[in-house]
Design a protein around this nucleic acid. Structure first.
Length: 319
DNA sequence: CTCCAGGGATGAT
DNA sequence: ATCATCCATGGA
């Protein structure tokens, strides 16, 4: 396994600094299913932003930040605050964004529930790879896959007496094999992740260049990649390309749309739902989607499939 | 144990 | 163009 002590990479700690925030809820932002690798540490969280290991802790409107990285990665030193502020999109006008949401009961409930949730700016490859692995997986298991990929193929970073791992580059994944990837519980997704990594590492596809493409063109480019369909493409557009109108439709959102916006409707295929979401939720549809998603997931968790509360607590059977 | 999950690719109507 | 199946895996 990887030996942090003996890896030969010198590291240093940046002094903890503070960031003043407004309309930001760190825990909810990290727990809403848009990103999969942050872990609780003390009263905050540890994770990586690109190649940097980061600790973040929220106290009211204050964010305490500490970071560590390899020496040559961070010559400029104290820009951890700028890195964190950009990653968490603290510059998004959240008040205005929420005010732009449509005024209906489901949306209002979600907006109230998700106060302070921000759509973050993720590294493109990391986001793309994570969502290729997300197909037919629960959030908890995507987190497990992310962790295994990092542990096996990423680089260790020490932060606050803990070890976190960077997300492996496309080159590193491409140099792997389907067999190795399957050890990370990827199942049939291994083939897609490997094929996409190869297209990127070969230079055939550049994730950084298409930033000036239209949403439609960017979506088409992403859908050319193995394992990427409309849903995954929209997630990557929203979470990594800052296309805030992208509206991923997964099983949760489809359920919300059917129940809250089309109760008792026949002939409701995905195409019709898409037409509706694009005109109804507008230019910040991605934010609206994430609020609806998180609210549905967190409030449905304790109820059964019929949406009614369980009449009694189930007791584990003693064997 | 059973159910189902931030779907996509493929082949059948 | 729409619809049905299969694909692996493990958390709840």
């Amino acid at each position: 396994m990887l030996d942090v002590e003996g890896s030969g990479v010198e590291r240093f700690q940046v002094e903890p600094t503070k960031i003043v925030t407004m309309d930001f809820d760190l825990a909810m932002t990290l727990d809403c299913g848009q990103v999969f690798h942050w872990e609780p540490s003390g009263d905050g969280f540890v994770g990586t932003i690109g190649e940097q290991a980061v600790f973040v802790e929220q106290r009211g409107d204050l964010l305490r930040v500490a970071s560590a990285s390899s020496r040559w990665d961070n010559e400029q030193g104290q820009d951890a605050r700028a890195t964190v502020a950009r990653y968490f999109a603290l510059d998004h006008p959240l008040r205005e964004i929420c005010a732009s949401f449509p005024n209906d009961p489901a949306m209002n409930a979600a907006r109230d529930f998700c106060r302070g949730l921000r759509i973050i700016r993720q590294p493109k490859w990391e986001c793309l790879a994570s969502f290729i692995c997300s197909s037919m997986k629960q959030v908890a298991h995507i987190r497990q896959i992310s962790h295994k990929l990092r542990e096996r193929f990423g680089e260790p970073r020490r932060i606050r007496n803990e070890v976190v791992y960077t997300f492996p580059s496309a080159e590193r994944i491409a140099a792997s094999s389907e067999k190795e990837l399957r050890k990370c519980a990827l199942g049939y997704r291994a083939k897609n992740l490997l094929a996409t990594a190869r297209q990127i590492s070969s230079g055939d596809v550049d994730l950084e260049s298409p930033t000036q493409l239209s949403d439609t063109e960017l979506r088409a480019r992403l859908c050319d990649l193995p394992g990427v369909g409309a849903k995954v493409a929209n997630c990557v557009m929203l979470f990594a390309y800052e296309r805030l109108s992208a509206f991923p439709i997964d099983v949760w959102i489809e359920r919300v749309l059917r129940e809250k916006y089309f109760p008792r409707a026949r002939k409701l295929n995905v195409a019709r739902l898409r037409a509706f979401t694009e005109k109804y939720f507008g230019s910040h549809g991605g934010y609206a989607q994430q609020y609806l998603f998180h609210h549905a997931r967190k409030s449905r968790a304790k109820t059964n499939r019929k949406g009614t509360h369980r009449p009694f607590v189930t007791v584990p059977r003693v064997r």
